[in-house]
């Protein structure tokens, strides 16, 4: 059902986008601040992620994206006064630990484990017997473009393949929320485009909620139902931009007028923040 984009009337976008009426709010962050010594990384950040939504986060470098990531992953506690709600329940950041499947920038594969054993690391920790976990992962290999590679070691794989193994590990660790931190940042442009389309495919098939952090505006629009722009430090949400582009999304989308206009809006917002961030660090 991939209609040529130019034939799709703008009003119809809303019907094809799944985020317009999310079933429920999965994660609600209210007034999240974080201070390290005399550096304020986040200041009163508010964000809401609906079940099944694909939300992307962009911002200038050093805007506290990583801090946000660590808080949502449950690895760091925000300053007092923050309100975190997960599945409608108030909780601490550390309660999210183990409830969120996260994938950091580096693939962090264990070099002594084969592809299949790296993929099952998380579910093995949960207590699934190794044989059962391997059988489960083996079935998923073709979908992740890794069929026939199960016995290889990470140092025998290309960067794109290593990233897919890490993503597979994240997908196998079935949690309501997936948190991805610039997973394609280290890949070359061509591989990155392929991986983005592939990720959308897998996301739609598996019905997951994704919070995706990136510094690439094209990537943020191409993937997301909504793009959140974070301000320069101290970080808060500067702009929340719904991306009402139809799915499934193809390569031709990035040159469409709708895409370009969204990109212009985002770039302007980010440019402003980058300047602030730049001036703050250079002292001008």
């Amino acid at each position: 059902m991939s209609l040529p984009l130019k034939n799709v009337p703008t009003a119809d976008h809303q019907n094809t986008s799944p985020q317009v009426a999310p079933a429920s709010t999965l994660l609600d962050l209210g007034g999240v601040s974080k201070t390290f010594g005399n550096v304020q990384a986040l200041s009163g950040l508010n964000a809401r992620i609906g079940t099944g939504e694909f939300v992307t986060v962009v911002g200038p470098s050093g805007c506290g994206k990583s801090t946000l990531f660590n808080i949502v992953a449950g690895l760091e506690e925000p300053d007092d006064g923050a309100g975190i709600q997960f599945r409608g329940q108030s909780c601490k950041a550390r309660d999210l630990l183990g409830n969120v499947s996260f994938m950091p920038q580096q693939d962090l594969l264990l070099p002594w484990r084969t592809v299949i054993d790296n993929a099952i690391l998380a579910i093995e920790m949960e207590g699934m017997p190794k044989a059962e976990a391997r059988a489960l992962a083996l079935k998923m290999l073709p979908e992740f473009g890794l069929a026939g590679f199960e016995k290889q070691y990470p140092n025998q794989l290309s960067g794109g393949m290593r990233q897919r193994v890490a993503l597979m590990r994240t997908f196998l660790f079935k949690r309501d929320l997936m948190l991805l931190d610039e997973p394609f940042g280290a890949l070359d442009a061509l591989t990155r485009t392929m991986m983005q389309r592939w990720l959308l495919d897998v996301w739609q098939k598996h019905n997951r909620t994704i919070l995706f952090i990136t510094h690439d505006v094209d990537e943020a629009i191409f993937l997301g139902d909504r793009v959140l722009v974070v301000t320069a430090r101290p970080g808060k949400i500067k702009l929340e931009l719904p991306v009402n582009l139809p799915r499934p999304r193809g390569a031709e989308l990035v040159t469409s007028p709708e895409f370009i206009s969204l990109k212009r809006t985002l770039l302007e917002a980010i440019e402003e923040e980058s300047m602030k961030s730049f001036q703050a660090t250079t002292g001008h």
């Binding site: 690895l75 630990l97 183990g98 499947s101 996260f102 950091p104 962090l108 264990l110 002594w112 920790m125």
Partner: peptide, 25 residues
């Protein structure tokens, strides 16, 4: 690598699992 440790912690690794699966190797 502390990041590797954080990742395993997010998978709910116990101290024993952390030792056997990550630290000793």
């Amino acid at each position: 690598n502390p990041k590797q440790e954080a990742l395993l912690r997010s998978f709910g690794a116990s101290r024993w699992q952390m030792l056997i699966r990550l630290q000793l190797p």
